[in-house]
Design a protein around this nucleic acid. Sequence first.
DNA 1: TGCCATTGTATAAGTGCTTATACAAATTTA
DNA 2: TAAATTTGTATAAGCACTTATACAATGGCA
Lengths: 160, 160
Amino acid sequence: MAFYQQTGVLVFGSRLRRLSESFLGDINNVYKHHGIAFDAAWFPIFYMLSETESLSITDIAGALETSHSAASQLVAKLHEKGLLRSVPDKADARKKRVALTAKGQRLLVQIKPIWTAVKAAMNELLEESPNSRLLMAAIQETEAGLARESIFQRIEKHLP
Amino acid sequence: MAFYQQTGVLVFGSRLRRLSESFLGDINNVYKHHGIAFDAAWFPIFYMLSETESLSITDIAGALETSHSAASQLVAKLHEKGLLRSVPDKADARKKRVALTAKGQRLLVQIKPIWTAVKAAMNELLEESPNSRLLMAAIQETEAGLARESIFQRIEKHLP
DNA sequence: TGCCATTGTATAAGTGCTTATACAAATTTA
DNA sequence: TAAATTTGTATAAGCACTTATACAATGGCA
């Protein structure tokens, strides 16, 4: 802990990663504790399918901001688990659209109250301290700063 | 992007992870761009060995806040690359202490100016916006909030 | 209309973590 | 002091991602 404070921003990335893992790990423990076979990594897909009928691999990869490969593998796994089913895309035969199965729908019903509690817990946590209250805004502004000029560019600027 | 704003804190973890990967990836690109065979994940070890003569696997795992296994595997890799050498621990024969080799020391000299530039670039980025300026403080307070009461506890509290 | 670049997806191989297991050295305890 | 426990490390197996590659369907263009 002392080490990380000392080196400050240089280990910023790892520090964020740890914080992230802490969140996801605890949320997964909540699912497990309630005997619900759900993984926090599946959230984006289930959330989107709770609002939209069906999604293509590209839709999913785009929303998760990850590779098509990762989206494809994730969908394959949920398919195997019987939570997703393929639906043909009338307009484009290349696309593999997926929708929730009946089993997936039942899981969704179970999960929704957990989502509500997660949201409440996070808001509570963030509202507790004067600066943590600004965490989301700070992240957003940092992302915007990166969009203006990449870290790569910024570092190169400071090199001889 | 719109999706993530909509779901807010529920994808907080993944959002932090992405931000983290963006930092580490760009820093690695800087090393590559300057023809330096160094990985951002090695930073903590090299930094500590620039201030301390030698470290044990447990020291490293503790500082990185990761598993002994991960530390052991990382050390094994740096050993293979000829950057670390084993030094016997007089007091405890179980411990495997490591120190920089001559090659490791030369690499350290090459890397230090990059570290300075990374630090400067990060500070610049964080100082650009009113809230991003508070990012480190916000993270620290959030970590402190988690220490007071875990996310798991907080979520359970909000469940029926 | 036929060719070609683009788009959408799947799969293989590789990486870096994790947990589980093993084992040796040190320490505690009876 | 012998036995049991703890500590320090290594290795195996598994997981989730990555990049690279392949290939089929589509759309643009000559």
